[in-house]
Every structure is written in structure tokens, then in C-alpha cells.
Design a protein around this nucleic acid. Structure first.
Lengths: 271, 271
DNA sequence: CAGTGGTCTAGACCACACT
DNA sequence: GTGTGGTCTAGACCACTGC
């Protein structure tokens, strides 16, 4: 995203748009690829987020401050922030400010978990019990490597755990994480931490998951899963394969879960 | 949403907001429930959509025309339309106008169908083959009635069909529709119509589905389903229960599908 | 009270589609 | 060229939070 924003203002006098916003000087490849100012501002804010200029939970500067910094109007900054808020990267709070989003807030504890109890009213059923089966270093298989955008036999950390609701084992899942960013992750970490795993990733490893993509199938459990979930091998389970992404659409986690759906269901709202 | 918009302009001179936008005259129950002008405009446009003032596929009046009609600025209409476009009720096309969204456009043919072939590259695999098993009048069971917001033993139309991809039966689903709005729906209708079923509902019955909610479980097929899908009774299937809503969050369709997921998967993107 | 986000307006100009 | 949506600005005022 080259642009003329910083340090030179992209406008000459007032209220005129840089008519060639997104184009580099001499590059004449294809159409000029017009990019609105607010998209460039969005990219700059995104960059600050990636650089951890502001940390999860922090307030970012006010719209007027950012407008002054980027030499644009407040309305343009506003539109940029609007989109970042829509992507759940920022959270606006009227009267208080705009904050860097977090997986820690109790509201969004299980932001990516779509499994709900069948009986709607009881949303309590308490927080899930978490049992870590293991947490060990492994080498990436070809398949896992492909999904994580790594190379076969790259170093990974694999975690297996079981989640129980009301003492009933309901989810059995494996996680694969690149060993580099998650160096030092241990069973102790995982056991002691309260709250969602993504909150731990944020606070302990500075890795913020931004979006995820899931592939769901119906399967029968293998022997191990059947044992961990305490079900017969003939019981159908939901297989949920999730890839979670940080900034820049970089995949940072592969997760394969088996969900018991006799008293729960995977809830999805289509718009 | 009572308001002072039509016919009296809500602003006195210029650039002042009606400070009491969403409140009725004498009602002093609770806080005034402030409602922004653009939300009121949104409600008015929504009303016009429900009244079929503009039909699916039509252009709606330009932003300036609507601004003049509602006695507000173009920017306010724009924000209202922005939200309706985000909800997929309207579609903006730069240079051409704003259109009432449709399920007929080939882009969004299967807007609510999340089942994708495992191998990403082949998106063709041709359109699905559709086989109608039956289409008959039934009475609502207590369960179905509840889900559709009707009363037990109200008149319904039930449709059962099988979808095949590349000649392999993959989806077996039952639909329940309220008999009133869908009076006259027949096997002939369903067989002759090309394209998605929701497109038929739109063009033939004036019913536009706006959003849907799905509950997914893993199940084993019953005898009939196993036969229709040509699979053994021990093969796990995805059970997808969908409620589709028209305007005003009115449920208008219940659909129960069984998906074969050996070569396909249910794709879900989490933001 | 001041500071922040949220709404509304008015006017200018750009990008795109059609004619 | 004309008309449409899309961007940008500048300034005013409202609603909410916290001092």
C-alpha cells in the first residue's frame, strides 16, 4: 500500500481527493487501482495494531488525534475505524474511546465456539471443565503443514484436550501451533490459565486471532476419541476443523475437534 | 417507530437533530429510547420493501430522490441504505443505482447452502440434480408448529427432495411451509423451476427470505434417508435444521437436511 | 464540566455506467 | 454528457462517561 499520506498530505487545498491515491509513481501496470483514502488509513491503523503500538485492551487515540496524525478529516478516520470495528479488531465505546479488541472480555470468551446447549434458556451450565491430555512438540505432517502454510516436518506444538459441560465430556480436540511464536507453551500454562485459550495466546504470546474458517463433517470416533468422550464407536460426532488466522491472513492454529451433539448443537446464523 | 419524519420535517432550520427522535408524545415510560434519524429512514425503506413498493430486482429511487421524499440529507439516506445493503436486502451498483436484492442472481444462487466439495478447485461439478420425492399437504406437529411460530395442526405443505452432485445423492431434505402464503405449490412447480428454491418462492409467491438460522448435529440416517441417499444405516450424516425468516423476523420455512459428508463439508467462516 | 464517540448536514469532487 | 453511487471535508450538535 504505497501512498502519499505520510508525511505529505494527499490533498492540495481542501476537500479534493487525491485523484491517484493508490498508485505508485512510475508503475504503469494495469489500471491505477484506485484506493480510497479511508482504506489507506485503515491499513495504517492495522499496521500500528500489528506493530503492537497499542495492545489488546488499550484505548487508541481519539478520532480527532488520528485525523491530525494522518492529515485527514475526522470523518475519514471514522470510516476506517468503522470497518475495523466491523471486523472485530477494534471496539467502540461511546463516551470512553475506541479500544483494541480482546478475547479476554467475558462477553466474547468463546467467540469462535458455536456449540450451544439444545435447551436455550440455560446459558449458564457453568464454564467448561478443561482437561489437558497432553502438550508436546511434534513435527508437521504434510497435511498439517499445508493447512498452516508451513513446510513438512517444521516444528509444532500439539495439544490435546477434553472439554466437559456439566461433567459430561463433550468436546475432544487437537491443536497444532507453530513452535516459534508459541515457544514455552506447557501443560502448566494451559491448566492454570482461566478463560479461553485465545485469551492466553494474546496475553502470553502476543498472538491475536482475528478470524477463523471451519470445515464440518459427520464422523465416527476413533478409538482414542471414543475413550476420551466415553462414547461407543458407533456414535456419530461432529468433526470441526478450524484454521485460525492472525493479522495478514496468516494461519497460526489448526484445530480438530470432535463434538458430541446429543445434548448440544452447532449454531450458525446465515445472513 | 413513531417519528416526526413524514410529513413534518424533524429539523427546524438546519443541521440540528431532532432531540427526541424516537419518543412518542406523552409516553414517559423509561428512557426516551433515542433512535437516530437514519434508523427511522431505514425502517421506512424496509416498510416500502415489505409493501412490495419495489420488487426484487428493481432499482429503488436514487439517494437524492429518497432524501427529498423523507426530507433529510442524502448522507442520512446513505447510512440507512448502507445498513440495508449490509443485511443483503439491497444491493448497490456504482453508476447504476441501488437494487432490491434477489435470490435469483447466479452469484448468490445458493446463498444459504454451506455445503462445499472438499476439493476446492472444482467449483463447477455442475448444478445440483434435484429430485422431488413428494409435495403434500400436512398438519403441523407441535414441534414444527413451535419452530414456525404457528399452532399445532395448522395447514402446512411438506416437500421432500434429494439433491445429487455429479450423480451422487448427497442431500436429503424435508421442507415445511405454511400453506397460506404458498398456496398452489406443486411438484410441477418445483420440478420445472430452474435455480434455487428461494428464487421460486420470490417470483411465484412473493416471499423473500432474508436470513436463516441453522442447528447442526451429527446423526445416523433413518431407514428412509439411508435408502434415498443410498448409504448404510451406520454412515454418520450431518443433520442441518434451518429456519428461514422473511421480513420482520417472521419464520416462513423449516428445513431439515441430511448431508453426506464423505466428499463434501459444511464450510463456515467465523469473524 | 470536558472529552469521546455518534448523528446530521451541505457541498464538492471522483469513479463508473449508459447513452 | 448526465446520472448514479462513492469519497472527502468541515462544522454543528447530541449522547454517554467520568472527573
Amino acid at each position: 500500500m504505497s501512498s502519499s499520506i505520510s508525511p505529505t498530505p494527499p490533498h492540495s487545498e481542501h476537500a479534493d481527493q487525491s485523484s491517484e491515491a493508490g498508485s505508485v509513481v512510475g508503475a504503469a501496470l494495469g489500471p491505477p487501482a484506485f484506493s480510497p483514502l479511508y482504506q489507506q488509513i485503515k491499513a495504517l491503523i492495522l499496521h500500528s495494531l500489528q506493530q503492537s503500538e497499542w495492545l489488546p485492551g488499550d484505548v487508541i487515540p481519539s478520532e480527532f488525534e488520528l485525523a491530525a496524525r494522518f492529515k485527514v478529516s475526522q470523518g475519514t478516520v471514522r470510516k476506517a475505524i468503522d470497518e475495523l470495528a466491523a471486523d472485530h479488531l477494534l471496539v467502540r465505546k461511546q463516551g470512553k474511546g475506541t479500544f483494541v479488541a480482546t478475547h479476554t472480555e467475558h462477553q466474547v470468551q468463546y467467540r469462535f465456539l458455536r456449540l450451544k446447549p439444545d435447551l436455550g434458556t440455560i446459558q449458564s451450565e457453568g464454564p467448561a471443565q478443561r482437561n489437558i491430555v497432553f502438550c508436546k512438540k511434534v513435527r508437521a505432517t504434510a497435511e498439517v503443514a499445508t493447512l498452516l502454510g508451513m513446510r513438512t516436518s517444521d516444528a509444532l506444538i500439539q495439544v490435546r484436550r477434553v472439554l466437559s459441560f456439566a461433567s459430561i465430556p463433550t468436546i475432544c480436540e487437537d491443536l497444532w501451533l507453530p513452535a516459534g511464536p508459541f515457544k514455552g507453551l506447557s501443560v502448566e500454562h494451559l491448566s492454570e490459565h482461566h478463560g479461553a485459550m485465545y485469551s492466553l495466546f494474546e496475553t502470553e504470546f502476543g498472538v491475536r486471532m482475528v478470524r477463523a474458517s471451519e470445515r464440518i463433517k459427520a464422523v465416527l470416533p476413533d478409538e482414542q476419541a471414543a475413550q476420551l468422550l466415553q462414547v461407543a464407536a458407533s456414535i456419530p460426532l461432529l468433526s470441526v476443523e478450524r484454521i485460525a488466522f492472525t493479522y495478514n491472513d496468516t494461519p497460526m492454529e489448526l484445530r480438530r475437534g470432535l463434538y458430541l451433539t446429543d445434548t448440544h448443537h452447532y449454531q450458525n446464523d446465515l445472513n
